[in-house]
Each structure stands twice: as C-alpha cells, then as structure tokens.
Amino acid sequence: MDEEYDVIVLGTGLTECILSGIMSVNGKKVLHMDRNPYYGGESSSITPLEELYKRFQLLEGPPESMGRGRDWNVDLIPKFLMANGQLVKMLLYTEVTRYLDFKVVEGSFVYKGGKIYKVPSTETEALASNLMGMFEKRRFRKFLVFVANFDENDPKTFEGVDPQTTSMRDVYRKFDLGQDVIDFTGHALALYRTDDYLDQPCLETVNRIKLYSESLARYGKSPYLYPLYGLGELPQGFARLSAIYGGTYMLNKPVDDIIMENGKVVGVKSEGEVARCKQLICDPSYIPDRVRKAGQVIRIICILSHPIKNTNDANSCQIIIPQNQVNRKSDIYVCMISYAHNVAAQGKYIAIASTTVETTDPEKEVEPALELLEPIDQKFVAISDLYEPIDDGCESQVFCSCSYDATTHFETTCNDIKDIYKRMAGTAFDFENMKRKQNDVFGEAEQ
C-alpha cells in the first residue's frame, strides 16, 4: 500500500465507483478503499435476508415463511433508472452494461384523492384515464405537443414562451391547466419533490418532461429500469471497470487518518501504512468535519406477500404521492420490486416508501404510502441524515459526494458526479471521457 497514487477513493457507493471508473479509464492511477467488507456503502443491496434483520437490530431473524435468505437482495436506497437518463448513458458509454441485466418497471402510478391511478404512457391511455376530465385532456394534450416540439435552440418552437424568464406557473396558465393536472405534471412527469420549481424559469421543467417522455418511448410500460439482483450491482459494475483499467481495490480496510500538508491532501493512513495521493474522493462518512447536515430522509422497507392493490398485479412499480394531495411540502414515493428481479424469495415483494422528513414524527409522514401497502409482513425503518460538503474541495483537493436524496431516480446523483468531475479535472464533464479506450493495455477482449 505504500505507494504513490493520482487519486484515492474512500467508500464504494455508486458515486465513488463511477468516479473511480472514469478516473481509471482516463489513465489515472487509482486506489479504492472501503472500511466495509462489502461494496456499495449507503447504496448497497443487503443479502442474505438475515443480514438485513441484523442491521435493523431485529434479533429474532426472519421467519421460515420468508423463504431462503440467499434469495434476497434488499436495497437500502430505493431508486430506478430513467431509461433515457444520465446513468444509463454512463453505463452505455463505459460498457458496464455487459455486467448487468435490466428489466423495465411495469408501471408508474400517481395518488389522487386517496386512490392510485396509472400515469398514462400512451395517448390512448391518456384519453381513457380517469385522472382528468374530457376538456382537461384536450388542454393537457396541447401542452404535451408543445413540450414535444420544444427545442431550446429554435425560438420558432417557443410559442411566445421565453425559456429563460417565463416561469412554469405562467406556462401552466397559458395552457389553462387545472391544479390536479399541474400536480401530476410537476411531480409524476417532471419528478420534482416540491413546488419550488413553479416560480423558476420553465426551461428545466420542460426538459425534465421531455426526458420522461423519451424514456417512456424506449420501452413503453414506464420510463424506469431496474437491474436484476438489486442496485448493489451498479457500484460493483463500475468497480470492475476501474479494476480492468488498473485500479487497486481494498475492502474491509480501516481508514485511520487523512493526511494533510499546508491545507492540501497528501495521503491516507491505514493500519500503520500511508498511501500518498494528489486528490481524494470520499463519501460524507469519511470526513464528518468537512460536511454539513442538509436534512433527513425516511425510508421504510416493507416486505409483502402480495402485489400492491390497484396496480394490475404489477411485479414492479412506482407510486408518487404528490405533496398537495397530503398537505406536505415534499412528495412521498413508493418503489416496489419483487422475486421477478431476483431480489426476493418466490411470491414475495419489496416495497420501499420514502420521503424528505418535515416533522418530528417521520413515520407518521409516510402513513399515506403504508396504507396502500397493507397487509405488511415486516417493516424496517431507516431515518438517514443527508450531508453535503461545506466547500468545493478545490483548495484541499478533498472531494466529497452528497448523500443520496429522496428522489426515486439517479439524475441528482449523476449531477453530483459531473460536478465533482468538473472540480477535479478543471474541465466540464463530457460523456466521451467515459469511453473505454480501444486496444489499450487494460481493455477487455470482446465477449
């Protein structure tokens, strides 16, 4: 370990593993360490099931009705991949897709007046949907046509809207959309967690709705994908990429100290040895004095023996409960997957309800979601602090990732990755940087 590296990475969460992969592909010498004996950090999948019970201090362990412990891979952080989103792009560019198998999530649902409705995925579904009345549908269709044709580089498509100054509230007004449709559009399509976006320039919202539609167009059922064997497969896929390009991995490796000289990182000390480096990437748990708390998320993992009611017996789905429907500031989400994804025993389902904490009784906040899941065989409640770095790391060369937020997709995580890359490399992130180099010394032969 007593060696000189360009970059040392602490923690094998998804953000850290993707950055480690990119740095290795770009010719950097990388050492990647984790104090845990497993990959994934906060974003790991726990197996066998006995391990999950232990982690949540349920000492009696799983009953026999849960089947074989080894058949379970339970995500600690519930997220899906947008089919046309940035993480899929990263997987394709790096060819990490060859280590993973994905399934399309069967449906996306939205909560309205105590019931759940399928988010329409085709024009026919939209016309048949009970989510809105006849005239509302016509106006909504006009709005969707506007979004589909919108091109930020072609003012002819703006229809009198200025993407940089017109607020989204004004765009909704222009198409005369009612409150329910606005809730549905902002939260189930643009996937905002709160209503803060309404008074911001509309460009980002329009682009988010386009991303949803384009992702949906790829597979038809929903815009989301999920990897077989759980999300823990993602960091491992990128760790393989890093290793192929010469990255060194050490799990179960305690970090005793991060060594600084004149305010700059110069190395990491572990078990009496020092590895030197020019730059350091880590998750917040490794540098508690360089991060601040930015809120909390509650996630309740529920094991069920039945599909969720009114989802047409889907073996995977997402449910969004827009905040307006339950008098909150932030949406509540449910991600459900099952034995069909090799993450649970035969006939079992895993539904994870999550939201940003707003009160001193977080469990009560998630109740509307839990009511949709009854009866629940077993619950595991996790309340996590969200951390963000206190500075950009440019001076110390210590670059810290943000905690995983309450969103049900990876777009915010990818933004964090691109942002850290830019601060480390001094140049904007470009997907081309992730391409495997042809015929290089570490390149794998085609399968």
Rank of each mutant, 00 (worst) to 15 (best):
I300N: 06
C317S: 07
A126D: 00
N310I: 00
P254A: 06
I319N: 05
C414L: 12
P227S: 05
M66N: 02
N342G: 08
T359G: 13
S305I: 05
V74T: 05
V9S: 02
N324D: 10
K264E: 08
D257I: 15
G232E: 00
F146A: 10
S45H: 14
Q86D: 15
S45V: 03
C302W: 02
Y192H: 12
G263V: 01
V268G: 01
A425I: 11
F184S: 03
K348A: 14
S396N: 10
M23V: 07
Q346R: 11
Y286C: 04
P375T: 00
C335S: 12
Y172D: 01
P254L: 07
Q318D: 10
Q179T: 14
E271H: 10
S384G: 12
I420V: 10
R292H: 08
N149I: 06
A344T: 07
E136D: 11
G347A: 11
D377H: 12
R328Q: 12
I46G: 03
D196Y: 06
R139H: 08
R169C: 07
K379L: 04
A126W: 05
E432F: 09
S20C: 14
D405H: 05
V119D: 00
E446Y: 15
S44A: 11
Y224G: 06
C414R: 04
A217N: 12
R169H: 05
L131R: 03
L241Y: 15
C202W: 06
L52R: 08
I116F: 05
D419H: 12
E204G: 09
S20Y: 12
S65V: 04
V266G: 09
T360P: 11
L198Q: 09
F140I: 02
C414H: 11
V104G: 02
R299S: 00
G247W: 01
P227V: 05
A425F: 15
M250R: 04
V441R: 11
L304G: 15
R292P: 05
L76W: 13
S242Y: 14
D6S: 14
Y53N: 08
D289A: 11
R138W: 08
D257A: 15
D361Y: 06
I244S: 02
E261V: 07
K269Y: 05
E271Y: 14
Q397H: 07
L304I: 01
A126I: 05
N327R: 13
V297F: 05
V366G: 04
K269E: 10
G160N: 07
Y39I: 08
G69A: 13
R290F: 06
E106K: 03
D283T: 12
C414W: 03
L81P: 05
K221I: 14
A445E: 15
D71H: 15
L231V: 11
D385G: 10
M168K: 12
D283Y: 01
G186S: 06
I308N: 06
E64G: 12
M434K: 06
S270A: 12
N310V: 01
F150H: 11
N73D: 07
A406T: 09
E16F: 02
F56H: 14
L241D: 08
D183E: 10
E4G: 08
R240W: 11
V265G: 02
L52K: 03
R193S: 00
L304N: 10
T122Y: 01
V105G: 06
A128S: 09
G230V: 01
G41V: 01
T15M: 12
I337R: 12
K103S: 02
R55A: 11
E365L: 03
I116L: 12
I182N: 09
Q200M: 13
R276Y: 14
S396D: 13
N252A: 04
K329N: 06
V119P: 01
D257T: 15
N327H: 11
K112T: 05
K28D: 14
L234M: 00
T94L: 12
S270K: 02
F431H: 05
V326T: 12
Q179W: 14
T12G: 13
F399L: 07
P223A: 10
G27W: 02
G133F: 09
D416N: 12
S20T: 05
D392A: 05
Y404P: 13
V88L: 05
M90L: 05
E42A: 00
D391N: 08
G178C: 09
S20F: 06
D195A: 09
L191H: 08
K364H: 14
I182A: 14
Q325N: 12
E136A: 11
V7M: 06
V326S: 02
C277G: 04
L241R: 11
Y404H: 09
L177Q: 06
Q164K: 00
S108Y: 13
Y349K: 15
L59Q: 08
G113R: 12
V25R: 07
D283V: 02
R173H: 14
I320T: 12
T47R: 01
M33Y: 09
K418T: 14
